[in-house]
């Protein structure tokens, strides 16, 4: 990796996005998937890929120690070097992890932010969980055998209580 961060600088994917959007994802973007009825689940697919491209690349940049230092020095200024939306920026600054997923981030990329904060991942898991759990409560749920699969397979099951 060169002295400048690989992902820090403005990378213009306009051409890519435009081509994908017009010729491939134009309809695919809105296409339903058979996993859409799994509740509270945000897989990385062609829809989230486009929505979350920049915020995920920001998150991934935190793999690099120079980028982490820049982010630590001034979070807002570092975020401004990426072409991400104001909603995404605020979610990053506020560490609202569930909102980040809803805005296109993927959990494997979001790990970089919780690691940057030197927090255990259970803090992030608990914050995303329904209902919201503290670190200790999340640990306890897992020690008690984890969230049961029964009742958690589909949105219908959730709605039916």
């Amino acid at each position: 990796m060169s002295s400048s961060c690989r992902y820090c600088f403005y990378r213009d994917p306009l051409v890519l996005n435009d081509l994908l959007g017009r010729y491939y994802f134009g309809f695919g973007n809105f296409m339903e998937r058979d996993y859409d009825d799994i509740p509270g689940t945000y897989p990385l697919d062609s829809r989230t890929y486009r929505k979350g491209y920049h915020v995920n690349m920001f998150l991934m940049s935190l793999n690099n120690v120079e980028c982490r230092n820049k982010f630590a020095a001034d979070e807002q200024a570092y975020l401004d070097t990426f072409r991400i939306t104001e909603d995404q920026k605020r979610a990053v600054l506020d560490r609202r992890f569930l909102d980040l997923l809803k805005l296109g981030a993927n959990v494997y990329y979001a790990f970089k932010l919780i690691s940057f904060d030197r927090q255990p991942p259970q803090v992030m898991y608990g914050q995303m969980a329904e209902p919201r759990l503290t670190f200790d409560e999340f640990q306890q749920m897992m020690t008690d055998g984890g969230r049961p699969i029964d009742g958690n397979r589909s949105i219908k099951e959730w709605n039916d209580g």
Binding site: G40, Y42, L98, N106, Y108, E130, G145, G146, R147, I149
Partner: peptide, 17 residues
């Protein structure tokens, strides 16, 4: 094996599966 790391359903596991 079974695990979910993101979203409101985080923490789901399935020993039978």
């Amino acid at each position: 094996l079974s695990h979910q790391l993101g979203g409101e359903r985080v923490g789901v596991v399935n020993p039978d599966f």
